[in-house]
Amino acid sequence: MAVLEILTYPDERLKQEATPVGAIDDEVRTFIADLEETMDAGPGGVGIAAPQVGRFQRIVIVDCSKTRKPVPNHGRLFLINPEITQWDGMVVGREGCMSVPDYTGNVIRAEAVTLKALDLDGNEQEYHCEGFEARAIQHEMDHLDGMLFLDRLVSRRNDLFKRKVYQKK
């Protein structure tokens, strides 16, 4: 087990696209344990993506179970090769990133997402997430495509999407 070094922008590797995980073997699981330890060592992070520690594979951990104000959540999610299959609604929220110290900004995200991902045993799981957890998943999955929240900033001053426009299907 080890706490890994977190890459910080302007490290160009953060702009690199990650490749899918092939076999989920012991080496991958050991890495995920280190990634988890790194997330837990960070200040208040609700998620981490493998590219943030310089490993360019499609692996994300999200945990919204310990937020200051409780939010709906699935506990600790280990998402391997995640794919969002449905986006619903739009909402603005404030985001920061362990890879972008000392800055936060407003970002528009889907209010709810449905996704598929492999778990640690390689079984495909489906999740429906909303609100803060949905935001965390979208933020972390952006890292897999070389995207930072800086690429999605909207005005700090005008909250165009302040009211939820989430529509139930």
């Binding site: 208040g44 992070g45 937020t67 200051r68 404030r94 990133c97 362990m98 965390a136």
Partner: peptide, 8 residues
């Protein structure tokens, strides 16, 4: 309204 900043 409270601002919950997501750090990811």
């Amino acid at each position: 309204e409270s601002i919950e900043t997501l750090i990811g």
